[in-house]
């Protein structure tokens, strides 16, 4: 399934993403604002990407949140970034987990300037994509970075927290 899909070079992707983030930083003087924008853009991407993902991966409905996590890490990351990620740190009632990305292709050539190291989540787009994609299959999550090697942490970690699973309902007309 992964061999069939079209490929682009990692360099092209990471450099394009880099210029894109640099541009956003130029237009907004606040790194927090850039984080938000990246998240929002990612979420819009996720909204659209999910259909391609489902059609090409031929995945059917997941049994539980754990399976969702697995599919994201093993298939989602593999399909779009060419790397697999690890799922770990489940909380007790299985509503929160962490994704560890070992070689994040987006940040391959990146070094953050010191004044951004405490504020900017460089790859925040990924969080948005996860949130946006799951939203379309009625699974509402919150997703944020916990650690990033760019900031000097040991690993890159994204936290995904389940908010709720929405059921489509048809309300009765008011009498």
């Amino acid at each position: 399934m992964f061999s069939k899909s079209e490929k682009i070079s990692v360099e092209l992707l990471s450099l394009t993403y880099g210029t894109f983030v640099a541009r956003l930083l130029k237009e907004n003087d606040n790194a927090e604002e850039v984080n938000l924008q990246l998240h929002k853009i990612g979420s819009n991407i996720g909204n659209r990407l999910i259909d391609e993902f489902l059609s090409k991966s031929r995945k059917t409905a997941c049994k539980d949140f754990r399976e969702i996590a697995d599919v994201i890490a093993k298939y989602g990351f593999k399909m779009y970034l060419g790397v697999t990620a690890e799922v770990a740190k489940w909380n007790e009632d299985d509503t929160q987990f962490s994704i560890y990305i070992e070689n994040n292709p987006l940040s391959e050539f990146v070094m953050l300037p010191i004044h951004l190291q405490q504020t900017l989540w460089y790859s925040n787009l990924l969080c948005g994509v996860i949130k946006g994609a799951l939203e379309k299959i009625n699974v509402m999550v919150e997703c944020e970075f916990k650690q990033d090697t760019l900031r000097g942490h040991d690993s890159t970690e994204i936290i995904v927290k389940l908010v709720e699973i929405v059921e489509d309902r048809y309300e009765d007309d008011e009498m």
């Binding site: 409905a61 997941c62 539980d64 949140f65 969702i68 299959i137 009625n138 699973i165 059921e167 489509d168």
Partner: peptide
């Protein structure tokens, strides 16, 4: 009943 995602479908 076991499926969580897509039960609405």
């Amino acid at each position: 009943e076991k499926f969580i995602a897509g039960t609405h479908l």
